[in-house]
Amino acid sequence: MARMRKKSDLPTKTCATCGRPFAWRKKWALVWDEVRYCSERCRNAKG
C-alpha cells in the first residue's frame, strides 16, 4: 500500500491571477505543467 504524503512535500505553484501559492492535486496529475490558476474563479477572472 502506498504511503500518504504530507501536503508540505507536494509541489507548489503560484497562481497567475491572485498570486497565492497552491499545491498539486491528484486531478492535475496528467496536466500539472499546464496548470496556471488555483481555482475556476481565478481562471475566469484572468482578463
Rank of each mutant, 00 (worst) to 15 (best):
D33A: 07
R36G: 03
S39D: 03
S39T: 03
R5P: 08
P21R: 13
K26F: 11
K26S: 14
R36C: 04
R43F: 02
C18M: 03
A45L: 06
D33R: 06
M4Q: 12
A23D: 06
T12K: 15
P11A: 06
R20G: 06
W32L: 04
A2V: 12
M1H: 13
C15D: 09
W32T: 03
R3P: 07
D33L: 02
R41M: 06
A45R: 08
K7W: 14
C18N: 04
K6F: 14
M1C: 14
K27Q: 14
R5K: 15
T14H: 04
R3A: 15
V31T: 09
R20H: 09
G47F: 02
L30G: 12
P21I: 09
A2K: 14
M1P: 12
M4E: 12
A2Y: 13
C15P: 06
G47V: 03
K13D: 05
R5Y: 14
T12I: 14
P11S: 05
E40N: 09
C42V: 00
Y37R: 01
D33F: 01
C42K: 02
T12H: 14
K6R: 13
K13P: 07
G47E: 05
C38S: 02
G19H: 03
K7F: 14
R20T: 09
A29H: 11
K6A: 13
N44R: 11
R41A: 12
L10S: 11
D33E: 08
E34D: 12
E40H: 06
D9R: 08
R36N: 09
R3C: 13
N44C: 03
M1A: 15
R43E: 00
A16P: 01
F22S: 03
Y37K: 00
S39C: 09
A45G: 05
R36T: 05
A23K: 11
R41Y: 05
C42P: 02
R20P: 00
K7A: 15
T14L: 08
W28F: 09
Y37H: 08
L10H: 10
L30A: 13
C42W: 00
L10A: 10
R20I: 08
R20E: 11
K6S: 13
E40G: 01
G47T: 07
R36V: 03
P21N: 12
K7Y: 14
F22M: 03
V35E: 04
S8K: 15
T14W: 02
C15M: 05
T17M: 06
M1T: 12
L10G: 09
K7I: 15
S8Q: 15
A16Y: 09
